[in-house]
């Protein structure tokens, strides 16, 4: 029993530990300007981030990301449900949506900058929200459309009320697809969180990293890259935990169908 747990820990932590160790050793004697020793980077970390930047740069970035992301989730689902439910609305809207989805989201930054300049938080939140909107919206449409027709008939026969149909049939039934869209949107959101800070340089995680780079504070820049990586990892971890709980039924159903 303990042997199995040890094995799992070994498998999970083994390679990352080896890679970090390799980096540590290989960079130890490095005098290259771009690739400082990992020891130096680690030593730089507390001074760089724990003396106020965490609250003044990282937190606002994350809050903007969350605000834009949640806005996109709410809007995407709210618009996606009616579009998914009505075939004609879908036919009307789909080519337009496909077009907007195909525009690489960072291109939004200069367009939004036209409207309001690019200094305040609002324009950044709007950028993140619009970028995250399309995957959520299109996946919601697809999910709503794919809700099982037998279930729809069942809901009609047993007279589920309108609200119940929305909650217990449409939203639950399309939740696996909505989650897939939300996952895509999250990675787009992180990209836009960074990109939006590169314009109209303000404060923020992305802005900090670029400032370090421009002032050739290379170890500091590396700490920023690592912090950004950890942030991306943590966000996706949280997402997966939420998804794991919310979609337990879906995994069970899928496994049951696969076994049959």
């Amino acid at each position: 029993m303990t042997a199995r747990i040890l094995r799992r820990v070994g498998y999970t932590a083994g390679l990352p530990a080896v890679l970090v160790a390799l980096w540590w050793v290989a960079s130890a004697g490095s005098d290259s300007f771009f690739w400082p020793p990992l020891r130096t980077i680690v030593a730089t970390f507390p001074d760089t981030w724990l003396t106020g930047r965490l609250g003044e740069d990282v937190l606002p970035s994350v809050l903007r990301l969350l605000a834009g992301y949640l806005l996109a989730l709410v809007l995407g689902v709210a618009l996606g449900v009616p579009i998914g439910l009505h075939r004609r609305v879908r036919a009307f809207a789909e080519p337009t949506l496909e077009f907007f989805r195909a525009i690489p989201p960072p291109v939004l930054v200069p367009v939004i900058a036209l409207f309001a300049g690019y200094t305040g938080s609002a324009s950044k939140v709007v950028t993140i929200a619009i970028g995250c909107l399309w995957p959520v919206l299109l996946n919601t449409v697809e999910g709503v459309r794919a809700v099982d027709e037998v279930l729809v008939d069942t809901a009609r026969c047993y007279h589920l009320r309108r609200r119940s149909q929305l909650v217990h049939l449409t939203l639950r039934g399309s939740s696996p697809q909505i989650a897939a869209g939300a996952r895509q949107a999250l990675s787009i959101g992180v990209i836009l969180m960074v990109i939006s800070e590169l314009f109209g340089a303000d404060r923020g995680l992305g802005a900090s990293i670029v400032q370090f780079q421009r002032s050739f504070a290379i170890p500091q820049m590396w700490t920023g890259i690592i912090l950004l990586g950890v942030l991306g990892f943590l966000l996706s971890l949280i997402f997966r935990l939420v998804e794991h709980r919310a979609l337990a039924w879906y995994r069970g159903l899928r496994d049951a169908n696969r076994g049959a």
Partner: peptide, 20 residues
């Protein structure tokens, strides 16, 4: 052996590499 590493590296936003 690689599962955890892939799960860690994948969500790292590629834009983090921009300064580099």
């Amino acid at each position: 052996v690689t599962a955890s590493t892939i799960e860690f590296l994948r969500p790292i936003p590629s834009v983090a590499l921009i300064p580099l």
